[in-house]
Amino acid sequence: MRPKNAKIVEIVCETPSVRTLRFDIAFDPVPGQYLMVWIRGVDEIPMSISYKDGITVQQVGEATGAIFDLEVGDSLGLRGPLGNGFSLLGEEILLVGGGVGAAPLALLGEEAKERGMEVTTVLGVRCCDDLIFRERFEGAGELVITTDDGSMGICGRASAGLSCLDLQDFDQIYLCGPEPMMADVIGRCRGMEAKIQASIDRYFKCGLGICGSCSIDPEGIRPCVEGPVIRGDKLVGTEFGRYKRGPSGRKR
């Protein structure tokens, strides 16, 4: 598919460094799917979908910086939804999000609630100002907040929020956030890795499974088409949590 033109109809400043863009076109995404977002004249980057008609972006580099320069009425080119997305399984589920990783989980939590599932969320952020989508998660079920600086909720990383839960209670655990956080959670879930679904971040260039830039060592899983959601047991023993590759393909 060619990029579809999407006009920005609303911009919400979620935090000083995170914004949500709503478009004049809606997608029918499986929560966890992503869009290839073309910022014309700048670059094309993958972004996970946070609303049926929106994405939530953290300003981290040139392309996301250019998104922050856009105003209502400007447009982007969008390819997608791409990738597999999360698969909702069981009756009682746990969502664990770190920072802007909360974005696809909010959509997932809402869909799970609609299906009558029991949803618990643990959100880890650096400080209370970085928290996003609090109302959406509270609307879906129980919410546990952790902050690195102790400004809200439990003081510590998202994993500190897990210690007050019995992970055996959950049929399925969904992760999205910084890789060290997700690797840490998978490490704490020995024997339960197969019921974890993690949305992982790699350098996507084509989004079609052909360029190889996102390939995961050692089996060569292609997260752009076989992911971005990958089961925890398939990540054990891989590069996940240890290294990734840059745009040239070199490990870093």
Partner: peptide, 24 residues
Amino acid sequence: DGHRGPAVVQVEGGLLNAMGLPNP
């Protein structure tokens, strides 16, 4: 690092690419 994106786009009957020889 290769060219800036979009590096690949689907067109009628195939793909158009300009990866730009990314390699380590």
